[in-house]
Write a protein that binds this DNA or RNA. Structure first.
Length: 422
RNA sequence: GGUGAGGUGGAUGAGUGGCUGAAAUCAGUAGUUUGCUAAACUGCCGUACGGGUAACUCUGUACCGAGGGUUCGAAUCCCUCCCUCACCGCCA
């Protein structure tokens, strides 16, 4: 969440930035500042009275020790009165603080200066794009190919669980494992530390990375234990650093993890969800960085190049989008999406989203580092997919299909143990 | 799931209801001494939100797992919850 001090110091600028994200209630900024004023006023009042109470209580102790009972009793009465007068202040302070918090979490992160204006995916800016390949002959979409080569059984998944929970079989399962292995190796070679996190998280964690309260309906929830199934390993990975103060030499933190991801995707339908295009359970390899505040945009650039080279190594056609204000996530300051071209479906499929959250997450995480002057500063957090599996698999199958089988890119041969799926 | 023991600052670990935001030790850090290393000695060494200041300094409040309660006063007493450890049960 945003820092009240920033709202206070750069009020007009904050409102301009919020407008880029199509945020419709700029008046909340003023409300928050007013609530914060009220909070300060109440706290000052509370502190002053509490100080009197503390001092008098000590005094009572001394009076008792010297046997000065009468004076002690008199003071006790005073303290009791002060305490009573404290009650309404306490109550109002708690209410104000709650209201402040509740309002503050309604504000999305501020988009960086690079973010284009816009309201929907149409307005995203294409940063780079490779050429779209054209396939000749009788090309099949991946949901036909997975049937033909017995790689994935969607109906079986529906029987066991429901739609959106595919069953990978035989070489389909192996290809999936191959990709995970390759992605993890690629990430660790670039200095990302491999992690296997929990796949369920508690409410504090879901709040700290911004899934709550914004995306509550998107996550599966285990009511018995109050756990959320992770929608991405970003959540447990970033929460490793919740409530921590790092030394500057510990930065940057670079982590990678494979995990299944669970998303309810309520309201999705049609060809968007056909085959592997959108699932309730999918696999993803994620990268996360925790960095010093003034280094986060360099880190974002580095992550962008990292993911781009990975896609190039898979020989997939791709494009990079800079998301416009309206299409960005609530918590992001700048997001680049990677899309691969799916030649049989003739459409772009999102396979990675790389974002800088600046201090929006770390302010909730309370993750700070000591700078040179010994002051605690909020870190900046970033994450990206490297990469999401299902759509990569869809594009690999579709783009590389031939009459005699599917040709895998060379980087996967040693992992898969074969060059072709037939 | 059952029974028992616990949860104190970066770590270890004291703490009789007022003199404890918290002993001591270790780690860390700055300095003194020293031919180097080491050792010794000295200082510093939690976080958040406020007030005051040009700034260093100063100052108020809160926090000893979390939340309530008793009390003039709670790390210390009571209740609830969470977590850790040990043993038992169950089990990949």
């Amino acid at each position: 969440m945003l820092q009240v001090n920033v709202l206070r110091q750069k009020t007009e600028w904050v409102k301009e930035r919020l407008a880029v994200k199509n945020f419709k209630q700029p008046e909340l900024v003023d409300e928050i500042i007013a609530l914060d004023d009220e909070r300060k006023r109440l706290q000052a009042e509370f502190d002053a009275t509490q100080a009197k109470i503390n001092a008098s209580s000590k005094q009572i102790g001394k009076l008792m020790a010297t046997g000065n009972k009468e004076e002690a009793e008199q003071l006790k009465a005073d303290v009791t009165n002060w305490k009573a007068s404290l009650e309404p202040i306490k109550k109002r302070a708690a209410e104000t603080e709650k209201k402040l918090e509740d309002t503050l979490v309604l504000l999305p992160n501020l988009p960086s200066e690079k973010v284009p204006k816009g309201v929907s995916a149409e307005d995203n800016e294409v940063v780079r794009t490779t050429e779209k390949p054209t396939l000749n002959g009788n090309v099949l979409p991946h949901w036909e190919l997975t049937k033909k080569y017995k790689l994935i059984d969607f109906d079986l998944g529906t029987k066991i669980t429901g739609s959106g929970f595919p069953v990978y079989t035989g070489k389909g399962a192996k290809l999936q494992r191959t990709l995970i292995q390759y992605f993890l190796d690629y990430n660790t070679a670039a200095g990302y530390k491999e992690i296997i996190p929990p796949f369920l998280v508690n409410e504090d964690s879901a709040f700290a990375t911004g899934q709550l309260p914004d995306k509550e309906g998107q996550m599966y929830f285990v009511n018995e234990d109050k756990f959320y199934l992770i929608p991405t390993s970003e959540v447990p990975l970033t929460n490793i650093y919740r409530d921590t103060i790092l030394k500057v030499e510990e930065l940057p933190v670079k982590m990678t993890a494979y995990s299944p991801c669970f998303r309810r995707e309520a309201g999705s339908y049609g060809k968007d969800v056909r085959g592997l295009n959108r699932l309730h359970q999918f696999e993803k390899v994620e990268i996360v960085q925790v960095v010093e505040a003034d280094k986060s945009y360099a880190a974002l650039e580095e992550m962008l190049n990292h993911v781009e080279r990975l896609l190039q190594s898979l020989k997939l056609p791709y494009r990079i989008l800079r998301l416009c204000g309206g299409d960005m996530s609530f918590t992001s300051a700048l997001t680049y999406d990677f899309e691969v071209y799916s030649a049989a479906q003739e459409r772009w499929l999102e396979v990675s989203s790389v974002s800088n959250f600046e201090s929006y997450q770390s302010n909730r995480l309370k993750c700070r580092y000591k700078d040179e002057s010994g002051k605690n500063q909020l870190v900046h957090t970033l994450n990206g997919s490297s990469l999401a599996l299902p759509r990569i698999m869809a594009a690999l199958l579709e783009n590389n299909q031939t009459e005699n089988g599917i040709n895998l890119p060379e980087v996967l041969w040693k992992y898969f143990g074969d060059e072709v799926i037939d």
